[in-house]
Design a protein around this nucleic acid. Structure first.
Length: 578
RNA sequence: GCCGAUGUGGCUCAGAGGUAGAGCAAUGCUUUCGUAAAGCAUGGGUCGUGGGUUCGAUUCCCACCAUCGGCUCCA
């Protein structure tokens, strides 16, 4: 079955779902039910109250109906006929109006006893082709996706040509659930949330902070490599700053407001670093000789997300970016982009992601969404296209994905479960330097406005969550919060274990000991569940040789190793990020 | 924010209109034991918070808070 047939099959399954809904809940108003990436859904307005417990019941009805579905038959109707058929369904009538407006024909497709308004694209023989399906979940969804409209009930399902493929897909979902970073972060003692601290405000434990620092220190290395210098900035800023940058107008409701007891004016927690970097750039006269001038920053940013949008580290209200801004001349843009592409490539490879680039352009149909005039945009978009083409990296265009102030390159990374995430970003900004009145004196003595590049290598802190799920918590050595745990077999081995741990720690290894009065098996089990890369077992034999017996978390036994040579090996592996 | 679901000791969960249990974890004692869970004992919960109904609620109702699945949004 090819991709198109798969879509048609899923679309047919959506019809089947609709048919089952009508059989069981005849008063329901059906709306639309398309095939989607991994399955299908149908949106409907139910009069009966239904919940997820009803899904097996509906699924069962679908099975029954499917036996009678040998083919879809099509018929064309007039607007009048169509509106008569759907006289009680304002949603379908709205769709009919749109079909008329587009000048298309109104078609109905029927299988078994169920007919639905539809433009077509079904399986030839649904009974044969819908091999295996399952209803997965239920959720509310706005009619036509607009907040202003009525909330409908959406039922999600998936379908595959064979039971085996369905089972594999369900297994993948199960695996993804098992890797849920919120669950793993708790089990591995990385992050804590608290009702008292507040929704969407993560607390990193010492272990979590070690992981986070490993990630950010790598970004620091990469920043250094391409000449970004780190700054440090306060979180609280006057509203004025964001009025100049333009964020106040657009994002005021999404920023945390802070009140001073003494000053009457508004203050906000910063939702991004760029305005502050503009201030630093503009804080003194700049010469063309200083360009490109590049700042990085790792401060915590705050965004007042709507309650329903908060989701672990994927979407929090306080987070960090490995942020950076480059002020440069027009001629320098290409070179600076290339440098960033290079370190992003290095980073994504080190973390084990494959990726492609999205050339994010503006959508010419909505000019009001962007600042600046057409000519500047066209030039900038052309420039980025040239850069990405020269990079020879795989890319696709994303219409309407540009930032408000310019086009950008977004890096879409594929994780170990095949899921895609937007991670790195490099954005060209033709607007903000002008708003802040930034200038430099060029070679010819004239004042010029620099260009600005916004970029993040691994993006926001969401990346930590992606990493947790990507590695299922079993981080590679260089990232592991605890890299080695030493396991003395009895009390008389504790002293040596502590000395050995100290020796490793002195060399920069994140080493711990487990000196509980537990049996070795229990300690091994615990370290394995905590996904510590290396365990060092210490008994009489090891002490005699100044060695440890090394076991990897996957159970592999590396045997007897001198502590000094183990340390050498660790340092090498960490250096190679293997 | 909207639709739906959920909220019982640190964690995973059981339970019921009459004032709460299990396993793991923790603590203590015993054990000193070579590659995924030693034994015994002890402590720990105003059943998310605040109202209401009731002789009595943690169990029923309402509001709020938080979490989960989606929608919308994402500089």
């Amino acid at each position: 079955m090819n991709e198109k047939e798969l879509q048609q099959m899923r679309h047919s399954a959506a019809h089947l779902l609709a048919a089952a809904i009508l059989h069981l809940y005849p008063k329901t108003k059906l709306t639309i039910g398309p095939a989607i990436e991994n399955g299908f859904y149908y949106d409907a307005e139910f009069t009966d109250s239904i919940n997820e417990d009803n899904l097996p019941y509906i699924e069962n009805e679908m099975q029954k109906i499917l036996k009678t579905w040998k083919a879809f038959t099509k018929r064309e109707v007039t607007e009048k006929e169509a509106k008569e058929i759907y006289k009680n369904n304002e949603y379908k009538r709205e769709l009919i109006d749109e079909i008329i407006k587009r000048g298309e024909k109104i078609t109905l497709y029927k299988a078994g006893d169920f007919e639905d308004l539809c433009r077509g694209g079904h399986s030839e023989n649904p009974q044969k082709e819908i091999g295996a399906f399952k209803l997965l979940s239920m959720a509310g969804a706005y009619w036509r996706g607009s907040e202003k409209n009525k909330m409908l009930t959406r039922i999600y399902g998936t379908a595959f040509p064979t039971q085996k493929e369905l089972d594999e897909y369900l297994a993948m979902l199960k695996e993804a659930k098992k890797r849920d970073h919120r669950k793993l972060a708790q089990e591995l003692d990385l992050i804590v949330f608290s009702d008292l601290v507040g929704s969407g405000l993560p607390l990193y434990t010492p272990k979590g902070a070690k992981l986070r620092n490993a990630v950010y220190n790598f970004s620091r290395e990469l920043n250094k490599k391409i000449g970004y210098q780190e700054t440090a900035m306060p979180s609280v800023n006057r509203a004025e700053l964001f009025k100049i940058s333009g964020h106040y107008d657009k994002y005021k409701d999404d920023m945390f407001e802070v009140h001073s007891h003494y000053a009457k004016e508004e203050y906000f927690l910063k939702p991004m670093n760029c305005p502050q970097h503009c201030i630093v750039f503009g804080s003194r006269g700049r010469s063309y000789r200083e360009l490109p001038m590049k700042f990085s920053d790792f401060s915590v940013l705050y965004r007042d997300e709507k309650p329903g949008e908060i989701n672990g580290l994927f979407r929090s209200r306080a987070f960090t970016q490995d942020d950076g801004h480059c002020f440069c001349t027009e001629e320098q843009i290409g070179e600076e982009f290339r440098k960033i592409l290079e370190v992003v490539d290095e980073a994504l490879k080190a973390y084990g992601f494959t990726y492609w680039i999205r050339l994010s352009l503006r959508d010419p149909e909505y000019p009001e969404k962007y600042l600046g005039d057409d000519a500047v945009w066209e030039k900038a978009e052309k420039k980025l296209r040239k850069i990405v083409e020269e990079s020879k990296l795989p890319y696709k265009e994303g219409l309407g994905e540009a930032a408000i102030y310019g086009p950008k390159l977004d890096f879409m990374a594929k994780d170990s479960l095949g899921r895609e995430w937007q991670i790195s970003t490099v954005q060209l900004d033709m607007i903000m330097p002008g708003r802040f009145g930034l200038t430099y004196i060029d070679q010819d003595g004239t004042q010029k406005t620099p260009f600005m590049i916004h970029r993040a290598i691994i993006g926001s802190e969401r990346f930590i969550a992606i990493l947790i799920e990507h590695f299922a918590g079993a981080f590679p050595l260089w990232l592991a919060p605890v890299q080695v745990v030493l396991l003395p077999i009895t009390d008389r081995h504790v002293k040596f274990a502590e000395k050995a741990a100290q020796q490793l720690q002195n060399a920069g290894i994140r080493a711990e000991t487990d000196i509980r009065s537990e049996r070795l098996q229990a300690k091994i089990r615990n370290a394995t569940l905590q996904k510590v890369p290396f365990m060092g077992i210490i008994g009489d034999k090891e002490i005699a040789e100044d060695a440890i017996s090394v076991r990897k978390r996957n159970g592999e036994d590396l045997g007897f190793v001198k502590i000094t040579s183990f340390l050498q090996q660790l340092l090498q592996d960490i250096d190679k990020k293997s």
